[in-house]
């Protein structure tokens, strides 16, 4: 698909005190594609996402967004670039309805008064654009929705703002089979609508079902970013657990390993 990445990270370092969580990470997300970000617990997936969304400042490295070098120092910067994150714990208010949740913090107003009809209409159009037909009424409280419906609302909230990059943190972790299929279909549709989508998941079936590329983190290093068609299930598991698989991943000799710069560069360079 598109050759130039929407978001490109180069040489990202991030430490918490003495613990280095991200080492020289390179990462790219392409418009119209789903990039799966995989890695074991503690590999640095969430930290990387929080760096992208401006929650954590980075120690070193550069961001290139839409061809322009940018600095993201707060969630507001990320939002103004068009980066939206759907967190694992959804961040919806149970006591508000779907429209109210989708516009929370960014309400449309007519002077002082909330412009409810416009918000309801925009929400309806967004959900219709995502072909969501599982929601009965836009005015029902989120508490009455199923897990899959809540996830749908959270994703719709993220795409409402003409966002360009949507990051989904484990969107299917708590869902049943049918609902997982619904959400994955929605994820695929986001990419087909031209958005760059980053999907964090532990579930290899989900990853292979929807992603175009797979980026694997291992102990804070990006060990591979390859096309999904060019890699097997078993290889991904090896990358996640051991940091390398055959030609892919970290160099065999731990002496050459250094800070992991060489292997990460060679793999990502080969793909893009």
């Amino acid at each position: 698909m598109s050759a130039t990445p929407l978001l490109e990270l180069r040489g990202i370092d991030k430490s918490f005190g003495p613990v280095q969580v991200l080492r020289d990470v390179a990462f790219a997300a392409y418009p119209g594609e789903v990039t799966a970000l995989v890695g074991d617990n503690g590999a640095g997936k969430s930290t990387l996402v929080k760096c992208i969304s401006g929650i954590y400042p980075i120690d070193a490295g550069e961001f290139v967004f839409d061809g322009q070098p940018v600095t993201i120092s707060s969630p507001r910067d990320a939002a103004s670039l068009g980066i939206e994150v759907v967190y694992q714990d959804l961040a919806l208010c149970d006591n508000l309805d779907i429209v109210q949740n989708m516009f929370l913090g960014r309400e449309k107003r007519n002077g002082l008064v909330l412009d409810e009809p416009t918000m309801e209409q925009m929400a309806a159009e967004t959900l219709a654009g995502l072909s969501v037909r599982t929601v009965k009424s836009l005015r029902q409280h989120v508490s009455s929705l199923s897990g899959g419906q809540r996830q749908t609302v959270a994703i719709a909230k993220a795409v409402l703002w003409n966002s360009k990059l949507v990051i989904l943190d484990e969107p299917t972790a708590a869902l049943g089979v049918a609902q997982t299929a619904q959400v994955l279909e929605l994820v695929r549709r986001l990419a087909d609508n031209g958005l760059a989508v980053v999907l964090i998941s532990h579930n290899m079936n989900d990853v292979f079902a929807v992603s175009d590329r797979i980026a694997a983190l291992y102990l804070g290093q990006m060990v591979a970013q390859v096309k999904t068609t060019e890699i097997t299930h078993a290889q991904v598991v090896e990358l996640i657990t051991a940091g390398r698989s055959g030609e892919l991943g970290l160099a065999v000799d731990p002496g050459v390993n250094g800070n992991g710069a060489a292997p990460a560069d060679s793999t990502t360079g080969g793909v893009s």
């Binding site: 959804l90 006591n95 929370l104």
Partner: peptide, 12 residues
């Protein structure tokens, strides 16, 4: 009142 963390993340 409904979800303080959600409100904070929404920029409130």
């Amino acid at each position: 009142g409904g979800n303080r963390e959600a409100a904070r993340r929404a920029g409130i």
